[in-house]
Nucleic acid binder design. Sequence first.
DNA 1: ATGAAAGCGCTAACAA
DNA 2: TTGTTAGCGCTTTCAT
Lengths: 346, 346
Amino acid sequence: MSKKVSISDIARSLGVSKTLVSLVINGKGDEHGISRETQKRVREKVQEMNYQPDVLARGFRTGKTNTIGLIVSDISNLFYSRIARRIEDYAWEHGYSVVICSTDEDIRKEEAQIEMMIGRKVDGLIISSSQKTAESFNRLLKSGIPHVLIDRTLPGMNSANVSVDNFGGARMAASHLLSQGYGRIKTFAVAPDHISTINERIRGFRSAFDEKGIEVEDEMVIRAPFNALDQTIREQLYAMKEEGTLPDAIFALNNSITSICLKYLRELQVSVPGKVALVGFDDMQHFDFTQPSVSTIKQPVDLIGRKAFDLLLQQINGVPVPPSEWSVSLPVDLIVRESSVRNNGQ
Amino acid sequence: MSKKVSISDIARSLGVSKTLVSLVINGKGDEHGISRETQKRVREKVQEMNYQPDVLARGFRTGKTNTIGLIVSDISNLFYSRIARRIEDYAWEHGYSVVICSTDEDIRKEEAQIEMMIGRKVDGLIISSSQKTAESFNRLLKSGIPHVLIDRTLPGMNSANVSVDNFGGARMAASHLLSQGYGRIKTFAVAPDHISTINERIRGFRSAFDEKGIEVEDEMVIRAPFNALDQTIREQLYAMKEEGTLPDAIFALNNSITSICLKYLRELQVSVPGKVALVGFDDMQHFDFTQPSVSTIKQPVDLIGRKAFDLLLQQINGVPVPPSEWSVSLPVDLIVRESSVRNNGQ
DNA sequence: ATGAAAGCGCTAACAA
DNA sequence: TTGTTAGCGCTTTCAT
C-alpha cells in the first residue's frame, strides 16, 4: 500500500538525471564513465530510500522477465515434481522464478500453455512434451524463446534436449527378467503411441528378446489411457487372472503403472514374484519397502533437472553450446529388488 | 521474432483511436456507448490481424498480472505437489498462472520469496509458512496482496487460512493406538518447535493420553531437523534398538517421517506391528501396499487446494468473504491398516 | 561525465 | 459516440 520509491525519486532527491541512476543501478557506471563518487552517492541513496526496481516495468521495457516456464504432464507425479524441485532451486540461485503447468497429456492444453508462456515472455521454457510432431512447436520456434526438451523428445525437433537412455534401461530390465527365467512378459504403457520415452522403452524391451531369438507378440504391450490408467490396468489384470492368462512377468513403463500393477496384483492375491514378476521404469523411494520391494530402472532425476537448467541458462545468456552437448542422454541403473527375483518368492 | 501487432496497429488500420480499441477489447464497449457496428469492426480487425494483447504491458499499466504465487516447504513432497496440482488446475481455469517456490523450511528464504512475489506483483499468494510469528508478514500485509495460509497457521495472524483438524486427527491416531493396547508410544516430528500443524498434532496426541489418565513424558516427542530427517531418525532408531528402548508404537508426524520410520524398522528387522506399531499423519497411496501397509491420518488434499484457491479468488475479486469462511478447518480420517493392529502382526 | 527525451503497449481521465 | 492526452517505471539513444 505504501507508495513505491521509483528511479525518479532517487534522481530528484540527488539532483541528477534518471539516466544516471539507471546506469549505476545496472552496473554500467564505469562503462559509461560515471565518476566513482557519483556512483557511490547514488548507491547510498538507493539504500537510504530503500529503492527496489520495479521488475515488471523493467521486464516490459527490456523484454527480460527473469521467469522460466516448466511444462510437464503432471506436477504431482513424483518424477516430475522432483525434477521441478531441482529446476526451481537452480532458478532461484540465478534469480529466476518458475511458472509451472501440467498438461495431463492433453495436446491442446499444452499448446495453450506454451502460448501463455510466450505471451508472458518467459526467458526460457523447459518442457516434457506430449506433442506428436515438431510442427506443433512452430509458434515456440518462431518466438525465438530458448527452450529445452526434457524426458521426451520429438522427431525432427532439434532443440536442446535432456533425456535418459530409455532403450538401454528397458533392455536391461527385459534381459534381467529373461535371465531369471521369465519368458512370457507383458508390458503396461500409457496409451498415446507417440511418446518417445515409452516407444524407446518398448524398443529396448523387444531388443532383449531379439537377442535371445525369442519371438515378441504385439499383444505384449498393453496400453492404457492416461486419464483411466488405474481402472484400465485393474480390468486387464482381473481379466487375465480370470482367464488364467497372467504373464510370467510384467514390465511397467512408468512409476504410476508400477504402483498400480502392484496394488492390483496384491488385491488379486497374485504372489509377486512367485506367480508374476514385476519390474518398473523409474524408481521411487518407497519401492524399497513395498511388499514385495520392487525392482526398477532408476533415472538420474537430479541430473535431468540440472542439465536442463544449464542448457537453458546457456541459451538465455547467449553462450554458444557445442553441438555435442546439445542433446544429452543420461545413463540409468537397474535396481534389483524382490519383485523380479526367482527362487526368492513365496 | 515476428513483430507483434499492437493496439495502435489495429487503431491505425481502422482509422479510430487506441482508446476505442482498448475499450472494445476489454468488453467495455457497451458501457461506454460505443456503437455496435464499430465494436464489430474492431473485433473483426483483431481477428484478422491476429492481435494478442501484451499481458506484460497490461500488467505494468494496471497492476494486475494474472499470476498467483504458491510457497511451500518442498514441492517434491507429495502432500504439497498434490495441493499444487489442484491449485494449478483452478488457476488455469480462471486464467491465472502459478509461480511455485520451495522454502526448505528456511525462514529467510521464505521471506525472500515473499518479497520476490510482492515485487512481481502477483495478484495473490497461497502459502504454507515456516515463519514463527505474524510479524514476518508485515511486508506482505502492507502490500495489501490477497493471500491464504494453508496447512499451517500462525499465531496472531488473522488472514484467510485453510487447515485440517490436526488436533482431532492426532487424537484419533493416539486413541487408536491406545485402544490396541499400545502404551509406550513415541512420536517423531520435524525439528522447529513452532510449526502449528506439528504442535497441534502433538497436543492432540497428548490429549488422548490425558483422557485415559496416562502420564506423558516429554521424551515422547523426538524432533529431527528438516535437512537431516533421514539420518536423525536412523540414528535414533538404531540407538533404541541397541539399548532396548524401542517404544510399543510410533506416531510419525508427517508423510516423510512415516516412510523413513518404516524404512529403518525394516532395515533393523523390527517387526511391525509385532514389535513396534506405526501410524503416520498424512496418507500416501503406496502406504496401502507397503510391508506392512501403514495406518495413517488421511488429509483431504484436493479440498485444501480447492478451498484455498476459492478463498484467494474471492479476495482478488473483492468479494466480501463472511468471517465464518475466513478460517477453514477440514476434517481428517483415520485409515487403519496393518501397521497398527495388534494380534495381526507376525 | 551527465542529461533530455523518446517510447515500450496499454488504460483511463477528461474532452469534445 | 469517439478522440486526446498523460503516464505507469524503466532503459537507451543521442546530445552536450
